[in-house]
Design a protein around this nucleic acid. Structure first.
Length: 455
RNA sequence: GGCCAGGUGGCAGAGUGGUCAUGCAGCGGCCUGCAAAGCCGCGUACGCCGGUUCGAUUCCGACCUUGGCCUCCA
């Protein structure tokens, strides 16, 4: 089944054909690690995790890199405020990031390059750009000369001239042209820095991705992904640097951008302050419900975040896990199948909402047939999206560890006795008691089941 | 101001030139001691105005409106 992906560069959905089918390469712009990430930051990693899983089913080798930006002015600020070296900050939040992503069921990337571990390649790339006339030195800075790259603006559809006219930022006096951007900037003695031919300094924001992508994946890669807010200037600048440093070679063949997560109708962003940290959300809600919510809209569309949406996702998963719980005794066929209609939806530019609709069909089929094949299809379909990955009992426990199961079983036993004696008032009183404990019960032919009520 | 993407039923959210999205919630019924779950059924959704068409939510144009980027940002 061929994969089609929307390419931001051509603004069309095109059949995906890797340059080398034996080795598909993909790079995702990762976090700057100076704080916990918010749920909007997690959308890209989650949807592109689904893409990587899809690519793995179609190609023998997929090399997936997701960087860690561990040198940056915000990191410097945080380190100075707390009076610690930047490494203390970056290591702490890089670890938190890995934990948060793991919590959301994101498979770790094959490579997680760190900017500070690539200062050599970064300096080499800057030297290359200077020698080829695409960059210039000014007051200890090295700047990219946008005018030297005629294709500048192609990705974002911007005209460099109009860009300058509409520029809202104050233009640094050492820039030849307002659109020029920093490749290297000098550091003061208090700030982290590395020796270079131009100054004791540090890399600009955009150059690290270009250098690390080339170092690990090659000069031309198949897919470069990130949030739509990175389209300009970050990705535009990456294209300019990499293309010029590599003698005009194409940098990324596909550019993919996920839409923004909104909250109260506005983009969730640190500068607006309307953020919900993944770290906190994972404590309050089932992780799979968060993941399901992130996948319930098409990745290129904006997606609104709300408590109601999380509750809805939780209810949906309740239904699917209920099917699996009822089928606990059904032996699985292995390996799990790849449901064709779900795969087709994902092959169509990662249409996760359509895939989820198909997953609902599979859940209905499993509930109605009770067959091993249907159960395997449901689990196989869930696996395509990284959902239904836990035991049903664990899901219905909601991760609560402080449950007095013996007490619950005791109450259920008393209720059973009351019902047998047709003392329904007593039976209902016990149910009320369980409800007060946050426990929901269901009578069925197989006996009474209980689960933890959603908060 | 420039560039870009949206406006679908109570909510979320796909999709399509002409019977069906799907999920959540709601309502009626069956079942149940009662709940819950399950099953059956129900609701005349596509911003507005024109145009093309036998027929448009889907194509074209105008308008209204929301949001994103142009500065750090997933």
């Amino acid at each position: 089944m061929p994969i089609s992906l929307y390419n931001s560069l051509t603004r069309r959905t095109e059949p995906f054909v890797p340059a080398d089918p034996a080795r598909v390469t993909m790079y995702l712009c990762g976090p700057t690690v100076y704080n916990y990430v918010h749920i909007g930051n997690a959308r890209g990693p989650v949807v592109f995790d689904v893409l990587v899983r899809l690519l793995h089913r179609h190609y023998p080798q997929v090399v997936y890199a997701r960087n860690i930006t561990d040198v940056d002015d915000k990191i410097n600020t945080a380190a100075q405020q707390q009076g610690v070296p930047i490494g203390t900050i970056t290591e702490r939040f890089a670890r938190a990031y890995r934990e948060d992503m793991a919590g959301l069921g994101v498979t770790p990337p094959d490579i997680e390059p760190h900017a500070t571990a690539h200062i050599g390649p970064i300096i080499a790339m800057i030297e290359n750009l200077l020698q080829s006339g695409h960059a210039y030195v000014a007051e200890g800075h090295v700047l990219f000369d946008v005018g030297s790259f005629p294709a500048y603006g192609e990705l974002s559809g911007r005209d460099p001239d109009e860009l300058i006219a509409g520029s809202r930022v104050e233009v640094a006096p050492y820039k030849r042209s307002p659109g020029d951007f920093v490749l290297w900037k000098p550091s003061t003695p208090e700030l982290p820095g590395w020796d270079s031919p131009w100054s004791h300094g540090r890399p600009g924001w955009h150059i690290e991705c270009s250098a690390m992508s080339a170092a690990h994946l090659g000069e031309t890669i198949d897919i470069h992904a990130g949030g739509i807010d990175l389209l300009f200037p970050h990705h535009e600048n990456e294209i300019a640097q990499s293309t010029c440093a590599h003698g005009g070679k194409v940098f990324a063949r596909w550019w993919m951008h996920n839409g923004m997560l909104t909250f109260d109708g506005r983009k969730m962003s640190k500068s607006l302050g309307n953020v919900l940290l993944v770290h906190e959300l994972l404590k309050q809600h089932p992780a799979e419900a968060l993941r399901l919510r992130l996948l319930s809209g098409h990745y290129r569309q904006p997606l609104d975040w709300s408590d109601g949406a999380i509750a809805q996702a939780t209810s949906t998963l309740d239904g699917w896990y209920r099917v699996l719980r009822d089928m606990a005794d059904v032996e699985l066929t292995t390996p799990l199948p790849i449901p064709e209609r779900m795969e087709a939806a994902l092959c169509d530019d990662l249409n996760t909402p359509q895939a989820l609709a198909e997953l609902s069909v599979l859940a209905d089929a499993a509930r109605q047939s009770g067959s091993a094949e249907a159960k395997a299809a449901l689990l196989g379909g869930g696996a395509l999206l990284g959902l239904l990955q836990q035991a049903p009992e664990a899901w219905f426990r909601r991760g609560e560890s402080a449950i007095d199961e013996a007490h619950i079983e005791d109450l259920l036993q008393q209720r059973r006795a009351a019902r047998a004696a047709r003392d329904f008032a007593r039976a209902d009183a016990i149910r009320d008691e369980l409800t007060a404990l946050g426990i929901a019960i269901e009578d069925s032919a197989q006996g009474t089941r209980w689960s933890v009520l959603s908060s």
